[in-house]
C-alpha cells in the first residue's frame, strides 16, 4: 500500500548528501527516439568540457552504444562481465579514442536481460562514483528490467522525446516511474531532476501541423526543456563513421548537443533550431543564419 502514493512525503531528507558523482540516465520509454545518439553526444560533450565521464550501455542483448562511440572492436569485457566478477572494471572500461576524459562501458551481446541485478549494478556504479564526475546511463526502450535498472540509481534524467503523441505519452509514463520507483523516490530523498530533450525536431513539419510543437510537448509533460535537436542526416552519417554526432563540428545537431551540455552545466543559452527557416528572397541575398 505504500510506494508511489507516499513518495512525496519525505522528499527533503536527502538535502545534505555529499556532493559527489552525478548519475544521469538517458531514457524515454519508446525505442528509436535518439537515446543512444543523445547518450553518446552528451557524454562526449561533458568530457570535452573537462568533466571525467563514463557512458554505460544498459541495452543488454542489443548493444549499440559501442558502435555509435566507434569502439566496438575494442570491447573485450562488458558490463555484465564486471557484474559477474569475470572482469575488473578497469579491464572493461574503454577509453575513448578522441577524448581523454571519456570512457565507455559496453553492454553484453550474449547475456540475457536478467543479467543486470540490482546489487550488481549498484556495486559497479559505486565503484565508478569514486573516479568519475558524470555517469551517463543509456537506457534500453520499454519499461522492463534493463530500463528500470538504468534509471533506478539516477540523480538526474534526460527524457528523450520525439515530436509525436506516442513518444510523448511514453515519456510521461517514464516520468511517473522516475518519480515513484527510482531509488531516490523509494528512499524518500529529493526527487530525480528531470530534463526534457526533444530530438528529431523538424520545424517545417511542425508548422505544417504534421508533428507536435515544442509548446504542445511542454504543455503535456511540464518539465524544463534542456534542448531541441533538429532532425538531420548528419546523425546517420556520424554513426556510419563511428563518432558521436557532436563531433561533426559546425552542424546544427552538433551545435544543439553542445548547447544541451552547456545548459546542463548551468549556462543560460536560448533554444535554437525551433523555427522553420524562411526560404525567401532575403535568405538568398543574405545567406543562411
Amino acid at each position: 500500500m505504500r510506494g508511489e502514493i507516499n513518495r512525496h512525503k519525505m522528499q527533503f531528507l536527502g538535502a545534505n548528501m555529499a556532493k559527489a558523482a552525478r548519475i544521469v540516465v538517458v531514457t524515454s520509454g519508446k525505442g528509436g527516439v535518439g537515446k543512444t545518439t543523445t547518450s553518446a553526444s552528451f557524454a562526449t560533450g561533458l568530457a570535452l568540457s573537462g568533466h571525467k565521464t563514463v557512458v554505460i550501455d544498459f541495452d543488454i542483448g542489443l548493444r549499440n552504444l559501442d558502435l555509435i562511440m566507434g569502439c566496438e572492436r575494442r570491447v573485450v569485457y562488458d558490463f555484465v562481465n564486471v557484474i559477474n566478477g569475470e572482469a575488473t572494471l578497469h579491464q572493461a572500461l574503454i577509453k575513448d579514442k578522441n577524448c581523454d576524459n571519456l570512457y565507455v562501458l559496453a553492454a553484453s551481446q550474449t547475456k540475457d536481460k536478467e543479467a543486470l541485478t540490482q546489487d550488481g549494478v549498484e556495486k559497479v556504479l559505486n565503484e565508478l562514483r569514486k573516479d568519475f564526475e558524470f555517469i551517463v546511463c543509456d537506457s534500453p526502450a520499454g519499461i522492463e528490467m534493463g530500463a528500470f535498472m538504468a534509471l533506478y540509481f539516477a540523480d538526474e534524467a534526460l527524457v528523450v522525446t520525439n515530436p509525436e503523441v506516442s513518444s510523448v505519452r511514453d515519456s510521461d509514463r517514464i516520468l511517473g516511474i522516475l518519480a515513484s520507483k527510482a531509488k531516490r523516490a523509494v528512499d524518500g530523498r529529493e526527487k530525480v531532476k528531470e530534463h526534457l530533450i526533444i530530438t528529431r525536431y523538424n520545424p517545417e513539419r511542425v508548422e505544417n501541423g504534421d508533428m507536435l510543437s515544442l509548446t504542445d510537448i511542454q504543455d503535456i509533460l511540464r518539465i524544463p526543456v534542456l534542448g531541441v535537436v533538429p532532425e538531420s542526416k548528419d546523425v546517420l552519417q556520424a554513426s556510419n563513421t563511428g563518432s558521436p554526432v557532436i563531433n561533426l563540428r559546425g552542424t546544427n545537431v552538433s551545435e544543439a548537443y553542445f548547447d544541451i551540455v552547456a545548459r546542463f552545466l548551468g549556462e543560460d543559452r536560448p533554444l535554437r533550431y525551433i523555427t522553420a527557416e524562411k526560404k525567401g528572397l532575403l535568405k538568398r541575398i543574405f545567406g543562411g543564419n
Binding site: 512525496h8 505519452r169 510521461d172 509514463r173 511517473g176 516511474i177 518519480a179 511540464r222
Partner: peptide, 11 residues
C-alpha cells in the same frame, strides 16, 4: 499530491 500525476500512475 503536489507533483504531476503521470500516465500509468494510480492514486
Amino acid at each position: 499530491i503536489e507533483e504531476p500525476v503521470r500516465s500509468g500512475i494510480r492514486i
